[in-house]
Write a protein that binds this DNA or RNA. Sequence first.
DNA 1: ACATCTTTGGGGAACGTTACCCACATCGCT
DNA 2: AGCGATGTGGGTAACGTTCCCCAAAGATGT
Lengths: 345, 345
Amino acid sequence: MEPQARPRRVTIVDVARHAEVSTTAVSKVLRNAYGASPEMRAKVRRAIDELGYRPNAGARSLRGQTYTIGVMLPDIRNPFFPEILDGVTASLADTEYQVLLGPGFNGEKEEARVTEAMIDRGMDGIILVAPISSRAHMERVGTAVPTVVIGRHGSSPAYDTVVDDDVEGAALVVGHLAALGHRRIAHIEHHETDPTRLTEMPNARRADGYRLAMRKHGLEEWIDVVSTSYTQEGGHRGTKELLARPVRPTAVFAGADIVAMGVLDAVTEAGLSVPGDLSVAGYDNTTFAAFGPISLTSVDQGGREMGENAVRLLLERIADRGRRSAQVTLSPTLVPRRSTARPAK
Amino acid sequence: MEPQARPRRVTIVDVARHAEVSTTAVSKVLRNAYGASPEMRAKVRRAIDELGYRPNAGARSLRGQTYTIGVMLPDIRNPFFPEILDGVTASLADTEYQVLLGPGFNGEKEEARVTEAMIDRGMDGIILVAPISSRAHMERVGTAVPTVVIGRHGSSPAYDTVVDDDVEGAALVVGHLAALGHRRIAHIEHHETDPTRLTEMPNARRADGYRLAMRKHGLEEWIDVVSTSYTQEGGHRGTKELLARPVRPTAVFAGADIVAMGVLDAVTEAGLSVPGDLSVAGYDNTTFAAFGPISLTSVDQGGREMGENAVRLLLERIADRGRRSAQVTLSPTLVPRRSTARPAK
DNA sequence: ACATCTTTGGGGAACGTTACCCACATCGCT
DNA sequence: AGCGATGTGGGTAACGTTCCCCAAAGATGT
């Protein structure tokens, strides 16, 4: 009753022997390569099925391909990212590619660790979702392996990008609130100082869009931006600050749904009601926003489409590494819900 | 201006040449293996840093190790799983291991695809989080590679398990509600027919625990189980059914927080209030439950501890593949919040 | 008839790493 | 002086694929 030696995994050599052909022939069949007659294909495929052969990815990686796409997610708690992932996996469902996720944990060091790990593992392509990494790091990644960056403005020859028009999205929110009759519309943003990130990060563009739209609606004097962070805690803190103003805003545009959660939290705590005392709008149109008891007005970026576009660009670039880099910008739409209403008189 | 050939990646051979030692020596240093003097170690490490060398995982995989742990998540939307993942990654942060996630999409076929892919890629260990796969499949995985299954009762020699005591968890909820004075306590469960799964799946055990606890509190006549699914939609459907009863329950024990979300949705829709008209309790103690405006009473399984234990078991088994399989059961705790209160008179 | 092309099949050298060897030097002990 | 033990370093054969070759046979054109 000793621990019997686990059976060695079946390799291409076993298949070749069983089908009475060369390993080269098996490899050709596996890759649908030129130089194999229909009869041989059939024979080899039968042997593969009979033996239950599966190619060893490590060995393949040594030769250049792993059929693996890595997706870096900075925060698995953010309910927006699953939408993107749906688009990615759906687009790859019928291909040989397998999607593996790497957790980034909202840190530059952590993002670097996981992207390096993906490169070490010979991934065929990498999708960076809303990375906080420096531009230099993303270019390093893009130079090593085909890369698409989702949610980062600005172009680079080293990688392709997919973003939504954040300025437009902010304008949709401000327009909606203004149309309802709000004038004192405040905004909670994610604090940013790094000059490159100020032009590239969606949070910065949304703040810009907010200011621009306020001016356009003649509400310049009511521009009120609180600078915290894109977390629930940031929304909570920002709201407490806003509620302490001598003249309170009647509406808050939170830069992300996760921030809006913090807003609602703080409003509940203060004994106020939404939208009675305060209208609240978010950004991302997460499942949380759609949730009945919350019913948060939000901006839909079309996460699915983002994922689909990222895959398209990535496959193109895997096929032709020399092609020029491309940028795709999607238009956001507004989804009004019960958290926004006319201001109290 | 032709597309300059990307520089070849630096290999162990380059390091050896640069340090003027053999590749064997470099390999020894990399693995902290026996047979390298301190001077040599220093020399090699310097060369590694100077060249920015990183080991190729594919080549390593061919020799047996990839320093990669695969975690299969059946549903990236379920807010409970990030807790587990935190425990996993925290335990592995100081090791050489890299965690990669595979999306399972709540499907048996999809789970099989991703687990096979992980095996093909030579992962050193696999953690299956709340899998719906058949026992046979999990044993196949466990035979191929060290495996820990989280959230599945029943033991197998092929893999280790980490679960919480779901019967106990259900008892905590019923006990809490009974102590508040509730008698008509209903339960929404996830429908299950497969006999093996009936003994292994947490949802089935929670339903058992509910029935058991109701009897223990002398509430046998009020046992009322609605069989839908562990989704928001399932909670919604189940609640509509319960609200249509001639004698309505005063409290609902939802088998999971995600189900409780559906309950709250339906209650809002019906114009009723929580906990005024209906007390609601969930299971998993997700961030959603802790969210202020919701404030859902829930059972905490200690997701972090689950992840930590899974890693411990996994590393043990990687070190000694022959050791007996182990089962860890954690005790759940109740987290009372505002969604449960004394029933209206 | 011959030359040339196309199709079909296989031999074998990589890819980067590890780990089993062996070789040699040095040391401590009888 | 002789011996085994210990420490240090390297040579080299795998691991499982892919893909560049070449060879042979058959098809086609003159």
